[in-house]
């Protein structure tokens, strides 16, 4: 291994010297060696994946290759695409097109639209049941959660919740859905079998996002105006802990928690802080903030790579996607995407 590395280093040196001398391109030898080298260094067979970024303003979804971070395709979709979800078989992505008042179905094999699903008016965010059969959609304008049966493409129930429903999360066992309502400032727990609200938990002002921990025991809810994240016990519906944020040199009112991603191993939580342009890294057990990572402007939502070693963020104002190395807790790259990127989704 060492000798190969040395070999590459010397070859690279040669290439640099060549280019300094005005050589038009690297020699084939250097290129071949580089390919071999990269292949040898790669940690096992990395799972190939792509990232979808929903761009609220220009009505597109940008497809970025996970390995090269190059844009593969820009797919035109309906008006104001925001929330996205992946089918369990990995073949389909669903996109909330809020101003088009429906859900668009993306075929991931050929990266094109294959149909639409009904959603109720102004769908902003949704959650897909673990079996992929049911979509729970927050209808921001009329205080409802619409339940859509995916195979038949029909709205099968409408559940009244608070004012301005937004955040949606399904428990890992599919039995509970949590919806947050922004003006009402509550997390509503919905029994999916009964299709009705069973508990309402008052949280900080303007709750935007909900996420279940991997074991399904907690629900984390971010409050944009309150500036906090409430950790709710999923069984007792009691708030176990409230996490606050303080970033030196950043005005308190710009700290507006939005997207939450909880690592599967139960160790870390990532919270996007909106106009504070930071992602807070939190210890899932102690609830302590470990680090604040500077990302692009107005960070909204995030997603992990399938192996959870990388986290991607959609930055609404700087029109880019930040790439976070989860092991090193460092921002490694920024990838320009469309206008007003809102959501990110890792797909096969």
């Amino acid at each position: 291994m060492k000798s190969l590395r040395d070999c590459f280093a010397s070859l690279a040196m040669t290439a640099r010297e060549l280019s300094l001398r005005g050589a038009p391109r690297r020699s084939n030898l250097v290129q071949t060696a580089a390919v071999i080298f990269v292949a040898l260094l790669a940690p096992g067979p990395a799972e190939a994946y792509r990232l979808l970024v929903s761009n609220e303003k220009d009505n597109t979804v940008t497809v970025v290759a996970g390995d090269t971070l190059e844009i593969v395709k820009t797919i035109p979709v309906g008006a104001r695409p925001r929330g996205m979800a992946l089918s369990p078989d990995g073949g389909t992505a669903y996109v909330c097109t809020s101003d088009a008042n429906h859900i668009e179905v993306l075929d991931l094999a050929n990266l094109s639209l294959s149909g639409t699903l009904p959603s109720g008016p102004d769908p902003e965010f949704f959650a897909l049941s673990p079996d992929g059969h049911t979509l729970y959609i927050a209808n921001e304008d009329n205080n409802l959660v619409s339940v859509v049966d995916v195979p038949s493409a029909k709205v099968i129930a409408e559940i009244p919740t608070g004012v301005e429903p937004e955040g949606m999360a399904v428990s890992p066992d599919g039995a509970t859905v949590v919806n947050t309502s922004e003006t009402t400032s509550m997390a509503h727990f919905i029994d999916t079998a009964e299709k009705k609200v069973v508990a309402n938990v008052l949280v900080g002002s303007r709750p935007r996002f909900a996420a279940f921990t991997g074991d399904g025991k907690q629900v984390w809810v971010s409050s944009e105006v309150g500036g906090t994240v409430a950790v709710i016990d999923a069984a007792s519906h009691k708030i176990e802990h409230t996490i606050s944020f303080e970033v030196p040199g950043v005005r308190r009112e710009t700290i507006q928690p939005v997207g939450i991603n909880l690592s599967r191993d139960g160790k870390l939580a990532f919270v996007a802080l909106g106009p504070a342009n930071r992602v807070a890294v939190i210890d899932q057990k102690s609830f302590e903030v470990v680090k604040y990572l500077l990302v692009g402007q107005r960070v909204w939502h995030m997603d992990f790579s399938p192996d959870q070693k990388v986290l991607y963020t959609a930055n609404g104002i700087s029109n880019d996607m930040s790439v976070i190395d989860v092991t090193a807790l460092k921002v490694t790259k920024s990838v320009p995407v469309g206008h007003l990127p809102w959501g990110v989704l890792a797909v096969p």
Partner: peptide, 10 residues
């Protein structure tokens, strides 16, 4: 109307 949206849960 917004107040009542919250109030009915409480």
């Amino acid at each position: 109307a917004d107040d009542n949206g919250t109030g009915r849960f409480l």
